[in-house]
């Protein structure tokens, strides 16, 4: 996806909110948007999601389907949570049965399965934010745009959203997010879009789990997965290509390999290793020793892993 000389202003004589934005968004990437309040972060996200059209320039190659999570999701909709999600899943192209299943599954994953039949107007702020997050994940979007989507979620749902983001990236999607918490998905992001003075400046971060980035961002929690390859595989050369999160590897005891990966990617990494032909054997999954081990939730695992 490419933005060429993109500008956006509200009204033909309004001031330019963004101007001369020229960036390329790669696939299979997690990009963080940073910038002060009112600099145009949300405007940039709406342009990326295709909700607004640029006032100048062109946006080409937007992956489809795209999905967007707004920062506030008012629940003033005359549906039940599951009813709304089923409608949105149908809009996103799922068939009736698949739409119903996706709605139930995502409410369940975000810990809102009990609210499926609750009218949206009766949901709490966190409950309606879960519905907003669920609607974006229903149809496995190739482009996921998150505008402070974590705000208002409980910690279990926040971790689940982290994992869902890693899943989308592992599946080759592009995820762009804004969050006020600098530790959000730290160590997992591939790039930074810095918004200031109406301009957007893109910079790459080194692959997750590969040590220092080019930007001074806090390193997030990591997970260590100890694996051994199928018989005859040479380590580490025999590792399947393109593993989620781009894990760094060090030799472990007894001919094993210790893969270090940003914590949100651990489930996706395990899935990729177990699904490889021939499959790899998992010895252990543990949080990497780090400054904040409480956040390394990799050993909890998900119901889906």
């Amino acid at each position: 996806m490419r933005l060429r000389d993109v500008g956006r202003r509200y009204g033909p004589r309004g001031p330019w909110v963004l101007r001369g934005v020229d960036v390329e968004l790669p696939g299979a990437a997690l990009l963080r948007v940073v910038g002060g309040n009112g600099t145009g972060k949300s405007t940039l996200l709406r342009l990326l999601a295709g909700i607004d059209a640029p006032s100048a320039g062109r946006i080409t190659g937007r992956p489809r389907p795209a999905a967007y999570v707004p920062e506030r999701f008012p629940a003033a909709l005359p549906f039940s949570a599951a009813g709304y999600l089923t409608h949105l899943a149908r809009v996103q192209g799922l068939r009736r049965g698949a739409a119903k299943r996706a709605a139930e599954e995502w409410l369940e994953r975000l810990g809102a399965g009990g609210y499926a039949r609750t009218p949206m107007t009766d949901l709490s702020k966190g409950g309606s934010q879960k519905v907003a997050v669920a609607q974006a994940l229903l149809a496995e979007p190739e482009l996921l745009v998150l505008d402070e989507a974590w705000t208002g979620l409980d910690s279990a749902a926040r971790a689940e959203l982290d994992r869902a983001v890693a899943e989308r990236v592992a599946a080759g999607g592009t995820v762009v997010f804004v969050d006020h918490d600098p530790r959000r998905l730290a160590g997992a992001a591939h790039g930074l879009l810095r918004v200031a003075g109406g301009r957007v400046e893109a910079s790459a971060l080194n692959g997750p789990g590969c040590g220092e980035g080019t930007e001074p961002v806090p390193l997030g929690p990591s997970a260590v997965v100890t694996v051994s390859g199928p018989a005859g595989a040479s380590l580490p050369a025999g590792l399947p290509a393109g593993l989620p999160g781009g894990p760094g590897s060090t030799p472990g005891p007894g001919g094993t390999l210790r893969l270090t990966v940003a914590a949100p990617y651990s489930d996706a990494l395990l899935r990729a290793l177990l699904a490889a032909r021939p499959p790899w054997h998992i010895h252990a999954v543990e949080p990497a020793p780090g400054p904040d081990p409480a956040r390394g939730s990799a050993t909890e695992g998900g119901p889906h892993s």
Partner: peptide
Amino acid sequence: GEPEAARHCAAAAAGP
């Protein structure tokens, strides 16, 4: 009839 945020969600999925 649709709140703006919900409109944005549908617009991202299907085009405004």
